Amino acid sequence: MTKVCVFGAGAIGGYVGGRLAMKGEADVSLVARGAHLAAMKANGLTLKQGGETHVVRPMVTDDPKQLGPQDFIILTLKAHGLAGVIDQMMPLIGKDTAILFAQNGIPWWYFHGIGGPLEGTRLESVDPGGVIWNRFGPERALGCVVWQAAEIEAPGVISHHYGDRMPLGEPTGEKTERVQILSRLLTSAGVKSPVKPNLRNEIWLKLWGNLSFNPVSVLTQGTLVDLATDPGTRRVIRTMMEEARAVGEALGVSFAVDADERMDMAAKVGAHRTSMLQDVEAGRPTELDALLGVVIELGRIVQISTPSLQLVYDLCKFRIQHA
C-alpha cells in the first residue's frame, strides 16, 4: 500500500489526511504537534464537511522517526516554515520519496523544469540562501494549488468550509507515474486533484488574489467582500494585479480571467478575513514574502517595474513589525 505522510497536519493537512484515511486506499500518517496532536491520539481526527461528521484514526505522531521512509510526503506548512523542518523530515525521505508542496504563493522550486535561460534560478525571497533547494533537491518536488478553506475548530477537529479542488503538477509539466498515482489517491478520497500540464498558470491565478487582497487586508482590516466592492480598495487591488500580471506574462504565464473577474471571485467568498490578517492579529509570522515579496523579486528578474507592489509591501511590512 502506498505510504503517505501529511507533515504539518493542521487545518488543510488534517482535511487532506482525513479524507485519505477515510478512503483507506493509502497507508496514511500525520505529523502534528501540541494540543491538536494530543487530541488526535486520544480521540482520533474528527472531520466535519457538508453537514457530515467522520472520525478517523490514522497514525499520528510528532516524531517522524517512528514512520520511516514514505512514498509521498504532503507538506502543508506555510512557506516560511519549510526551511526549519528539513532536518526533522529526513527520516521520512527515501530514495524515491516525492514531496507535494502545498503552500500559497510562488514556490521555491518555480524555476526547476521550466526550461530556457531562467532554468535553475533560485528565489531568495522564498528560499534564502537556497537552503530548501539544496537540502530537498528540486527533483523531489511536486506542486499543487490549494483551493480549500478549513480550520481547526478545536484540537483534533477539522471543519471544512468550502472548496474541493487541489490540482497537481510536475515542475516539468510531465504526466509522470508518481504524479498520476497521487492524483488518483487524492481524487478517489474526494479531493479533486487533476494533473495539470502547466500548473504555474493555476499557481498565478490563486496568487493573483492573495498577493493583493491579503496585504491590503492587513492595512485596512477589510474582509474580501469589503475590499472587492469598495471603489478605493478595488482600484488599489486592480493596480497591483495589473503589475503582477505583467510579471507573470513575461514569465510565460497565461491568465484565464481578467482582474475584475478575479476580484469578483474573491467577493463571492464573502465576509472572510484573510489568513494574513488573522496571522498578524495573532502575532504569527506571515506569508508576505511568499505572496508579494517574491513577485517583486520576479519583477526585477524580468526587468518589469512594480512600484505599487513595492509600496504596499513596504507599508504591510511596517504594519506587521509594529502589530
Results as ranks from 00 to 15, higher is better:
2 T>P: 13
4 V>H: 06
5 C>V: 15
6 V>E: 01
6 V>M: 00
8 G>N: 02
10 G>A: 02
10 G>K: 00
11 A>C: 07
14 G>I: 01
16 V>L: 08
19 R>S: 12
26 A>N: 05
35 A>M: 04
37 L>N: 05
38 A>H: 03
39 A>H: 04
39 A>V: 05
40 M>Y: 03
43 N>Y: 07
50 G>I: 06
51 G>L: 02
52 E>K: 10
54 H>E: 12
57 R>N: 12
58 P>M: 00
63 D>T: 11
65 K>C: 10
72 F>E: 12
73 I>N: 15
74 I>Q: 00
76 T>W: 03
77 L>C: 06
82 L>V: 11
84 G>P: 01
91 P>L: 06
93 I>H: 03
98 A>K: 15
100 L>H: 03
102 A>G: 11
102 A>N: 15
109 W>S: 13
112 H>P: 06
114 I>N: 05
114 I>W: 01
115 G>A: 06
117 P>Q: 14
117 P>M: 13
123 L>C: 08
125 S>R: 11
125 S>T: 15
127 D>Q: 14
128 P>Q: 06
129 G>I: 01
129 G>Y: 01
140 R>V: 07
142 L>T: 01
143 G>R: 07
144 C>V: 11
150 A>V: 05
151 E>M: 11
151 E>A: 11
154 A>H: 09
156 G>Q: 06
158 I>C: 07
160 H>G: 11
161 H>W: 11
163 G>D: 04
164 D>E: 14
167 P>W: 03
169 G>T: 08
170 E>M: 03
171 P>T: 02
172 T>D: 06
172 T>E: 05
173 G>Y: 01
174 E>H: 10
174 E>D: 15
176 T>W: 04
176 T>I: 07
177 E>W: 15
179 V>Q: 03
179 V>P: 03
183 S>C: 03
185 L>M: 08
186 L>W: 02
188 S>K: 01
189 A>E: 00
190 G>E: 09
190 G>L: 10
191 V>C: 11
195 V>H: 02
197 P>L: 09
201 N>M: 11
206 K>Y: 02
206 K>P: 03
207 L>C: 12
211 L>I: 12
212 S>K: 00
215 P>W: 04
215 P>N: 06
220 T>V: 09
222 G>L: 13
226 D>N: 12
226 D>H: 11
227 L>N: 02
227 L>E: 01
228 A>Q: 03
229 T>F: 00
229 T>L: 09
237 I>P: 02
238 R>L: 10
241 M>T: 02
245 R>K: 15
245 R>H: 14
246 A>W: 09
247 V>I: 07
249 E>L: 10
249 E>R: 09
249 E>T: 12
252 G>N: 11
253 V>W: 04
253 V>E: 07
255 F>S: 13
259 A>T: 08
261 E>D: 09
264 D>P: 09
267 A>L: 10
270 G>P: 07
273 R>L: 10
277 L>I: 05
280 V>Y: 06
281 E>Q: 13
283 G>W: 00
284 R>C: 04
284 R>D: 06
288 L>D: 14
291 L>D: 13
298 L>M: 07
299 G>L: 02
300 R>P: 00
301 I>C: 05
303 Q>K: 12
303 Q>G: 14
306 T>P: 14
307 P>L: 05
308 S>Q: 15
311 L>E: 14
314 D>W: 15
317 K>H: 14
319 R>Y: 04
321 Q>F: 11
321 Q>R: 14
322 H>E: 13
323 A>D: 08
